[in-house]
Simulated scan of single mutants.
Amino acid sequence: MASSFDQYQKRKLISSYFSVVISIGLVLFLLGCLGLLVLNAKKLADHFREQVVVTIYLNDTAKKVEVNQLQKSLAMADYTKEATYVSKEEAAQIVKSDIGEDFMEFLGTNPLQNSIDIYLKADYVTNETLDNITSELSNKAFIEDIKYDNDLVEIMNNNVKKITFWVLVLSALFTLIAVLLINSSIRLAVYSKRFIIKTMQMVGATKRFIRKPFVLKSVQLGVIGAIVALLGMGVVLYYLDRTFPELELLQQPLLISGLFVGIFLLGIFITWMSTFIATQRFLNLKTDQLYY
């Protein structure tokens, strides 16, 4: 009979530890994923900004030497990430592929123009920079027109500022929630042993002696929970890198390593602090207060 009771108590204890580890692991995993988002927020914003294209349409009378010189000068400019020459024949093939039919059969001619597509570096994708580039190039006689989506650039820059602000707010909020959730899990685990704590205290054990095993066990659970969270973060990071290789998420090993170490240490610190506070609270309670 005693053996069955001991097994029941052991299963109950393991279940309690398991729930604490899962709680810590899930909270740290969500916090770590948010950390990955914060670290890569600028890279993501830069990636979308660098998709904005400035198209320079050239006159049919433009000389090849002039076009080559313009393309080289644009490619060497500080604001340029890539400058690509697109002939009218290539442009016709792109349009044909997009609409799914040969529009030149109806028109009998190719109305498109030779052009140069400029992809800017992210820091230069602003309306002021684009206006300056347009003004600088407009005085060339063989350039017929310069087009870019002015409204898209303005909306994108405004949205990037808003998203950056809210990501920081969410980071602070999730950090607070992580601390509160882990603290609640630890307090519940300590609460279930409040009578043991008081019994040890009544037989003369010091507060430090009573607190030590609880702190060590909680730190062990925090380490396991942190490892579970890090494994989950590793899987997510690997999946995102394979799915979106253009973002180069693994090209910042120091920052990512720092985040992983930070999440690991955070799991240890929160469990240690929560256990210390919880045990201290029950150590300071009177015996009759343990029932409330």
Rank of each mutant, 00 (worst) to 15 (best):
171 S>Q: 10
153 V>P: 03
115 S>T: 04
166 W>Q: 05
120 L>R: 00
61 T>D: 09
169 V>T: 09
57 Y>M: 02
96 K>C: 11
78 D>R: 08
143 I>M: 12
165 F>G: 07
155 I>Y: 13
82 E>D: 14
104 M>T: 15
105 E>P: 05
86 V>I: 15
84 T>Q: 11
82 E>C: 05
153 V>A: 03
95 V>P: 10
52 V>W: 01
68 N>G: 06
40 N>M: 07
167 V>T: 11
112 L>M: 07
145 D>P: 03
126 T>E: 05
96 K>L: 13
93 Q>S: 14
105 E>A: 14
135 S>D: 14
157 N>M: 09
141 A>S: 12
130 L>W: 00
178 A>L: 03
125 V>F: 04
70 L>D: 02
123 D>K: 12
94 I>K: 12
55 T>G: 00
139 N>G: 10
173 L>D: 01
163 I>D: 08
165 F>Y: 11
168 L>S: 14
83 A>F: 08
53 V>K: 01
112 L>S: 02
153 V>Y: 02
111 P>R: 02
122 A>V: 06
104 M>W: 04
129 T>I: 10
51 Q>A: 06
149 D>G: 06
134 T>N: 13
61 T>Y: 04
77 A>S: 12
127 N>G: 05
71 Q>H: 06
136 E>Q: 15
97 S>K: 15
123 D>Y: 01
59 N>C: 05
129 T>S: 14
117 D>N: 13
167 V>F: 07
109 T>D: 13
69 Q>P: 00
134 T>H: 09
158 N>K: 11
143 I>G: 08
53 V>F: 02
83 A>P: 07
82 E>R: 12
56 I>D: 01
126 T>C: 03
63 K>E: 12
